[in-house]
């Protein structure tokens, strides 16, 4: 997805302004010339300046590069990318409830089936194996408290 520099520049500019405004609300440090607002203000000003440069450059190029290009991204490919994002977002939302094994395993399985256009059984085997090995390596060996969830019993190892 390629956006015209002017659009990105506008986002950068507005973000910079927001950062500067927010920084003005920070409490100054008593007895010091510079407080916690200094760096955010400098960074915000940098954003504003570079945003302006990007806007002007993008405006000049609008005839040649246009505003938005979705090169070679077929609907199927866009769906693939969307599913990748949905998988991670789903993990963030569901893992605390369903647990790591179910969320990562089921999601990984479905994603693999989608990418491979089928192969349901072998994908299930691979996804299950990878999830179990990851669970063992991180939860059992490295003692990371991966989300357990309420549905599955705790594995004996």
């Amino acid at each position: 997805m390629k956006l015209n520099d002017a659009i990105i520049g506008l986002v950068v500019l507005l973000g910079g302004l927001a950062a500067i405004l927010q920084a003005q609300t920070f409490q100054p440090t008593h007895g010091q010339a510079y407080g916690p607002d200094l760096f955010p203000t400098i960074i915000g000003s940098g954003f504003v300046l570079s945003g302006l440069v990007l806007i002007v450059g993008g405006w000049r190029e609008r005839q040649t590069v246009g505003w938005l290009r979705l090169e070679g991204a077929s609907p199927g490919r866009l769906l693939d990318a969307g599913l990748v994002l949905a998988y991670i977002a789903g993990f963030i939302g569901l893992a605390p409830v369903l647990g790591f094994l179910l969320t990562a395993g089921l999601g990984g399985w479905l994603l693999m089936v989608r990418f491979r256009r089928g192969h349901w059984l072998s994908s299930l085997a691979i996804a299950a194996l990878v999830t179990l090995v990851t669970d063992w390596a991180f939860r059992t060996v490295l003692l990371v408290p991966l989300p357990q969830g309420a549905l599955l019993p705790r594995l004996p190892w």
């Binding site: 994603l111 693999m112 990418f115 491979r116 691979i126």
Partner: peptide, 8 residues
């Protein structure tokens, strides 16, 4: 196959 594994 590799990409879903990388994601996990």
């Amino acid at each position: 196959v590799l990409m879903p594994i990388i994601l996990i």
